[in-house]
Design a protein around this nucleic acid. Sequence first.
DNA 1: GACAATAGTGTGTGTGGTACAGTATAATGG
DNA 2: CCATTATACTGTACCACACACACTATTGTC
Lengths: 111, 111
Amino acid sequence: MLDALEVSNGIVAEFRRGTFVLAVLSRLESPQYGYSLLQILEDKEFPIDANTLYPLLRRLDKQGLLTSEWNTDEARPRKYYVLSPLGREVYENLKKEWAALAAQIQKILEV
Amino acid sequence: MLDALEVSNGIVAEFRRGTFVLAVLSRLESPQYGYSLLQILEDKEFPIDANTLYPLLRRLDKQGLLTSEWNTDEARPRKYYVLSPLGREVYENLKKEWAALAAQIQKILEV
DNA sequence: GACAATAGTGTGTGTGGTACAGTATAATGG
DNA sequence: CCATTATACTGTACCACACACACTATTGTC
């Protein structure tokens, strides 16, 4: 049998899952590669598992929100991602929508 | 090709998905049946599709966060759900965790 | 008598997070 | 100079869950 903490953690994971895209987009106004993003987000106290981030980057690239480019000049080859024009537009939308959602939830929890 | 609005809406749906449980739990301190919840949440400007809500209620019941009971006294049989003690405890946790997450996101978006 | 609203169950599908395995190079410590 | 750790990815399979679709059935209304 699961206790309250375990159950809560599972549901909190669902919260966070929904916000991964927003967090990632927020860090890609300047180019980053996967590993640097992992560290940046960890520093920002928003850690994402590598097994979640890498597939997410590929997906956002495929959806056209990011553009990607291999950099082979440096010692180690790195795949850099950055917001595409579409991605930038989507990101601006999402910021507004997030604020709206947060306000709605706040309202529901207050009563 | 999808435009920015369509893509945004998909991602916003992901946001909302994560919060369904919280919204539903928040309305189940007093007993409600599925259909009444649909209407309450719609009134609160947090509409959930019936095809999402009904399976969600069954799942939360199965996980022990809710207790359910058929009421056959009224004209039409209705299945009433209400928070179990575990559910209540989880709900209190989630409110705190939600506030923490919202603050984190706020911080990430600010920079 | 038809039709919308009410109040559900059951099941299939698709998306996406997560896990696991694998590849490979660079830096560091003993 | 060899082992280990950190770096930096790819590829694929699994599973949970939202959502869609189909279905049943009663009540109220026009």
